[in-house]
């Protein structure tokens, strides 16, 4: 019975993910809803992404400076910070913050709409909830998470610069030239593909959890928690898989 339920849930999730994305190419288009979602997801997340990124960059730079100093390789701080942030830490950190803030918001909003019969109202009025609610959230996440990741990367690198120059007493010019060196197509591509996938996953998982809410306020709590937890796990898992694929595709040897 449990396996049957799990398969049925997975099927519903895949259908939602596919239909949500297909809604982008089929009329009617809810542009106003999408812009509203982009504002909530993007502009609303800017401050938290900024704060998390700057401290992540500073902590990373601090750790690496300390470790590399003991090996006499302090000048490589910029290079290692750059690669770590652009390829791995930047996209993952932004996605985790996004899942916590936006994913939970999507799940709780859709969940309360389910409980308040608002989704039923939409269906009665002939409006497809998938197009009206899911598609704008998926598209806004696919657009805004990469944008937030780029901002987060830049802020993290600045945080790393502050530590490298003012705490570890390294050359600022050398730090930035190391960063410039690692801004190769392979590194930038590897870092910029991930946020699109993460954004799509977070939006689909959160919409699915929200729309499958049942059981009153307790059920809403459960679906919101599940949305965040499943999103976080899926970000980490898919990050590993994507890293493996990207390293292979881009010709890196492991």
């Amino acid at each position: 019975m449990k396996i049957k339920e799990l398969i049925s849930e997975l099927q519903d999730f895949y259908l939602l993910s596919a239909r949500g994305l297909l809604g982008a190419v089929k009329k009617p288009f809810y542009l106003k809803d999408m812009i509203e979602q982009m504002d909530y997801a993007g502009a609303g997340s800017f401050v938290i992404i900024f704060l998390v990124s700057i401290f992540t960059g500073m902590a990373l730079s601090l750790q690496l400076s300390a470790e590399l100093s003991s090996l006499g390789l302090k000048m490589y701080t910029g290079k290692v910070v750059g690669i770590s942030i652009i390829r791995e830490i930047g996209p993952v950190t932004a996605a985790l913050v996004y899942a916590g803030r936006v994913g939970s918001g999507i799940a709780s909003e859709l969940g309360s709409m389910i409980l308040g019969h608002q989704i039923d109202s939409l269906r009665v009025f002939g409006v497809d909830p998938m197009k009206k609610l899911v598609t704008p959230r998926i598209l806004s996440s696919i657009i805004m998470l990469p944008a937030l990741t780029i901002i987060g990367d830049v802020v993290s690198l600045c945080g790393g610069y502050y530590i490298a120059v003012f705490v570890s007493h390294q050359s600022g010019t050398f730090y930035w030239s190391s960063i410039r060196d690692v801004l190769t197509f392979e590194n930038v591509f590897a870092g910029s593909v991930k946020p699109f996938i993460f954004g799509y996953l977070i939006a689909c998982i959160s919409c699915y959890m929200g729309l499958s809410t049942k059981g009153g306020s307790k059920g809403l709590r459960k679906s919101t928690t599940r949305a965040v937890v499943v999103s976080i796990v899926m970000i980490i898992v898919s990050d590993f898989i994507l890293t493996r694929i990207l390293l292979y595709v881009l010709g890196f040897s492991v």
């Binding site: 309360s112 308040g116 019969h117 608002q118 002939g126």
Partner: peptide
């Protein structure tokens, strides 16, 4: 299907429990 049901639903007007207004 959901598309076919749209026409059927237009024959009715429903007021859900507690209104179900879009909050």
């Amino acid at each position: 299907t959901e598309d076919e049901l749209r026409e059927v639903r237009m024959k009715f007007s429903i007021v859900f429990q507690e209104g179900a207004l879009f909050d």
